[in-house]
Design a protein around this nucleic acid. Structure first.
Length: 301
DNA sequence: ACCCGTCAAGTCCGG
DNA sequence: CCGGACTTGACGGGT
């Protein structure tokens, strides 16, 4: 049964877990001020998700701005840590799955040692946030495989090497197919080899298709609830890779059909209109009699 | 109060 | 070899 959710913020950004600041303004005071804005909006977004009956929420990577930057002083984390521990029970009480998805600059297969090092530091910060809130292993961190650098086999081998040298990553790391370089088939093969769950992105698969096996992809989750991503092409003229304002009912139903009756699944709706798009989708699904999975906090009025 | 130049980070591609 | 695209918005200094 499928549950859906939004990511990072409301469409109008009135609630946003990605508030940041200029690096030049970074200090303990500005950091804690901005972090608190993110925390407040995070709680409000969980409340919103709960009232809409959403099962998953993606927390923004700027939750603690510049947390992996060299100009960031780890002493500042003491206040952050106590705040997160205090919130742990409240956050968990919603029963909404919290996951994260770092930006394009996390590249575990780069030939540049410094790029890999910074990527690991960024992932270690993501891991710390989820651990500190006491979230379960279903709170994953989703990354792409990275670049190709003119030799896909070598690039894949470098990815494997990085994972092999950093076993701690496998606690929460998941890998996703992208719209240009690594197909679902590539990522399933890699996930099987490394023991990493594979996030299937429906839209990336349309742009970068392959003959992947959905059964093998599901198998990489070893009984835990998979996370998928869904977005649609925008109406009218659009650029390659651009996400639509809304997600089309038929795209959702295609994905639901692919999923079949395999059990629980969380789908992040990656539409520009965020919660407005999800609300529209929910209504359309109701009209056609499709039943969504709801979180434990959801009470239908 | 509003506008608009600028912003940590990577990779690929075209000129 | 370098600058722009990708995707994208929000910060914050300036008016």
């Amino acid at each position: 049964m499928i549950g859906v959710g939004i990511f990072c913020s409301t469409w109008d950004n009135r609630l946003n877990t990605n508030h940041t600041l200029r690096l030049s303004k970074l200090s303990k005071e500005t950091l804690l001020y901005t972090f608190e804005k993110n925390v407040k909006d995070f709680l409000a977004l969980l409340e919103l998700s709960c009232s809409m009956g959403l099962t998953i929420f993606r927390l923004g990577s700027n939750f603690i701005p510049f947390a992996s930057h060299e100009r960031f002083d780890n002493d500042w984390l003491l206040d952050v840590e106590s705040r997160l521990r205090l919130l742990s029970d409240k956050i968990k009480s919603y029963g909404i799955r919290i996951t994260m998805h770092p930006g394009q600059f996390v590249v575990l297969n780069s030939p540049r040692e410094d790029v890999v090092r910074r990527s690991l530091k960024e992932l270690s910060y993501h891991m710390w946030v989820l651990d500190t809130m006491g979230l379960s292993w279903e709170s994953i961190i989703v990354v792409h495989v990275g670049g190709v650098y003119g030799n896909k086999r070598e690039a894949l081998k470098r990815f494997e090497k990085t994972i092999g040298e950093n076993e701690w990553l496998t606690k929460r790391l998941a890998i996703e197919n992208d719209e240009k370089y690594y197909t679902a088939e590539d990522v399933v093969e890699l996930g099987e080899k490394l023991g990493l769950p594979v996030v299937f992105d429906y839209y990336h698969h349309l742009l970068n298709p392959s003959a992947f096996s959905i059964d093998r992809l599901v198998e990489t989750w070893r009984g835990t609830t998979p996370e998928f991503h869904l977005s649609s092409l925008p109406e009218g003229v659009h650029k390659l890779g651009e996400h639509g304002d809304f997600v089309k009912l038929e795209d959702f139903l295609d994905l639901a059909n692919l999923w079949g009756n395999r059990g629980p699944l969380d789908v992040v709706i990656e539409a520009k209109k965020k919660e407005v798009a999800v609300e529209k989708l929910i209504q359309e699904l109701e009209r056609v009699g499709y039943k969504l999975r709801r979180p434990k906090c959801f009470k239908k009025c």
